[in-house]
Amino acid sequence: MERSRPLFRFAELFSGLLIWGAQFTLVYMVTSVACGRGLGRATVASLPAVPAAIVAVTGLALAATGALLGREIAEARRGADARPTDRFLNTTAIALNGVSVLAIAYNALPALIVPLCP
């Protein structure tokens, strides 16, 4: 029998990628607004504000995705006798969260190596 609400199960499956999408949108918005409003050289506690904001957003996104990944891994360990469909969804969620962690981290790299505004 279908055990959990399907939309909720799908949300679990895609949550890592949705977090990647949110992080991507946020860092892009912060950069665009900062450059558009001439705030590219702004500092916070003597740190460059925009890269710091990007690192902070990325840290939060990584923490959230990491937590989801950990939860799915724990479920995989608990559910050795789970039904094939649940195992499939569980391993797919683990893989998608793993890809999301890589994508989030990769996405933030330009903040460390590329100049901010043209």
Binding site: L17, W20, Y28, L96, Y106, P110, V114, L116, P118
Partner: peptide, 30 residues
């Protein structure tokens, strides 16, 4: 699934020559 999601983070790579902030280009390049 991953391709479907990630493909939404690429649109600016058609706009590299429009003078957008370099760091923004970096995100889309990544």
């Amino acid at each position: 699934i991953a391709t479907g999601f990630l493909s939404f983070g690429l649109w600016v790579h058609h706009m590299y020559a429009t003078g957008l902030p370099k760091m923004s280009l970096g995100f889309f390049s990544a």
